[in-house]
Amino acid sequence: MSDPAALTALDARRSVPSRQLGEPGPDAATVLRMLESAVRVPDHGKRVPFRFLQIDGDARAALGEFLVERAQQRDPQVSSAQLEKDRQRFNHAPLVITVVSRIRPDAKVPAEEQLMTVGCVCFALLQAAQALGFGAQWLTGWMAFDAAVHAHLGLTEEEGIAGFIHIGTPKTEIPERDRPDPQALLQLWTGTA
């Protein structure tokens, strides 16, 4: 049995570290095409518990400077190496799509299920970027969970950050890594405890 092209693409997926992503990034039409694929996820009740923020150009460095200020507020003893890491965090890939979660109370769709939809969006965006010839990495870090960063990015109090998807052209080929053995993870349930 030969593998269909879609499975071949899934099997070829790998994260490209953000430091290994450079120009060129996708143009505006390509970004929209990626997002068209990313929104085709399971979404019980069509709640659309997500939205996107595009961070590119000079906004990447501006966010890095804010992160330095915020890191110093959070920990006055933070090292200069950590501050420089935070300053450069968004400067490697030419494009960062922030996937914002909008989880709302819903009698039919639990918050956990909505959050899984948002996670699927992040993964589908990685797949779409790779399908269009780009590399991508899904990152979070402390800033994804910091209320001041959320406010700085214009999120409401009910919103969160599921991930920063860094997208660009890979500077180098990324080697395959060990993957779990699906057979070792599969258990047959026979209907009895």
Rank of each mutant, 00 (worst) to 15 (best):
M1P: 10
M1Y: 07
P4A: 10
A6L: 14
D11W: 15
D11T: 05
R13Y: 03
R14W: 13
S15F: 06
S15N: 06
S15I: 08
S18T: 15
P26K: 03
A29Q: 11
T30P: 02
R40M: 13
V41Q: 08
H44G: 02
K46E: 14
L53A: 07
Q54L: 14
D58R: 13
R60G: 07
L63E: 08
F66L: 08
E69K: 06
Q73T: 11
Q73P: 01
Q77G: 07
S80K: 12
S80I: 02
Q88I: 01
Q88K: 08
L95A: 06
V99G: 03
K108Q: 13
K108M: 12
A111V: 00
A111F: 01
L115N: 11
V121L: 08
V121C: 00
A128V: 07
A129T: 09
A131Q: 14
G133F: 08
F134K: 00
Q137G: 00
Q137E: 12
W138F: 09
A147W: 03
A147V: 12
A147I: 06
V149D: 03
V149Y: 00
A151M: 02
E158M: 15
A162F: 03
I165E: 04
I167G: 04
I167H: 00
T169D: 08
P175V: 00
Q183E: 12
A184E: 11
G191R: 08
